[in-house]
């Protein structure tokens, strides 16, 4: 089985982003960038399947600016086999990302595509499902457990009320939730080895996909700031304030 893992380079989850004063976006100059945490989980899951002998090859793809190559290298250092970098400085919405990925799936014929459930910058939670629809493949989203049984995949999903398990045949889409696994750190020798693994350089034009955004960003604003309140000394004071001052008890 061949597994395709799309990975996105995003602002590191520890960074508290600032909105630009002119409200055109957030300030990304000199902030730390990392692989989207849900994509790390996706790469890890693919590697574990390979280690169990369930997969032969793992191909990672990233669509984004030059820096995204670093993200691909990180995935290669974790254990993926090769990369595809579709270089663009344009804003690429999940619909366009899904269209490019659908074209790549056509060329590579993976049996499984594992994506993150959401990217922690734009929080769209859409790409995997869109790709599933474009390819006409079944999906197991928000996965906390993935089991392969012959040609079927059984996926346990984190849903609002608890857990749901679904099963489907391949090829298929899986999107990862937080508790699927704990991604490994790449070891130094593997980081060195990853430098020699191949990355195919591509451009969006190679796939003939129109990247024009459908959503025009009119403004990016700071959310209303919450004022920190007061410290209370005792539990009795807390309850009294909640009852008499805030009126919520």
């Amino acid at each position: 089985m061949k597994i395709l893992v799309p990975v996105k380079r995003v602002v590191d989850y520890n960074v508290k982003v600032r909105v630009k004063p002119d409200q055109t976006g957030v300030d990304l100059a000199n902030v730390k960038m990392s692989m989207n945490p849900f994509c790390e989980i996706a790469v890890e899951e693919a590697i574990r399947m390979k280690e169990k002998g369930l997969a032969e090859e793992i191909v990672v793809v990233s669509i984004g600016p030059a820096g995204a190559q670093e993200t691909i290298r990180t995935a290669l250092a974790m254990g993926a086999d090769r990369g595809i970098h579709v270089t663009t400085d344009a804003i690429v919405e999940p619909l366009a990302v899904a269209k490019i990925l659908a074209k790549i799936a056509g060329e590579e014929s993976p049996e499984l595509i594992i994506l993150g459930k959401q990217a922690i910058d734009d929080d769209a939670n859409a790409t995997g499902q869109m790709l599933g629809a474009l390819l006409g493949w079944p999906q197991g989203t928000f996965a906390s457990k993935v089991e392969k049984d012959g040609d079927t995949l059984k996926v346990t999903r984190e849903i609002d009320g608890g857990l749901q398990t679904v099963s489907f045949g391949l090829p298929a889409i899986v999107t990862t939730d937080l508790r699927l696994n704990e991604p490994r750190y790449a070891s130094l020798p593997n980081i060195m080895k990853a430098k020699r693994k191949p990355i195919d350089a591509k451009a969006p034009e190679d796939y003939g996909v129109d990247l024009t955004p459908r959503l025009e960003v009119l403004k990016v604003a700071e959310p209303p700031k919450r004022q920190g309140g007061v410290k209370v000394e005792t539990v009795a004071e807390l309850v009294s304030k909640l009852k008499n001052e805030a009126g919520v008890l």
């Binding site: 957030v26 922690i120 734009d122 025009e216 990016v220 959310p223």
Partner: peptide
């Protein structure tokens, strides 16, 4: 977006 640290106004 960004865990609610920014609010994006979009026109579709």
């Amino acid at each position: 977006i960004y865990a609610g640290n920014a609010l994006m106004t979009v026109k579709s």
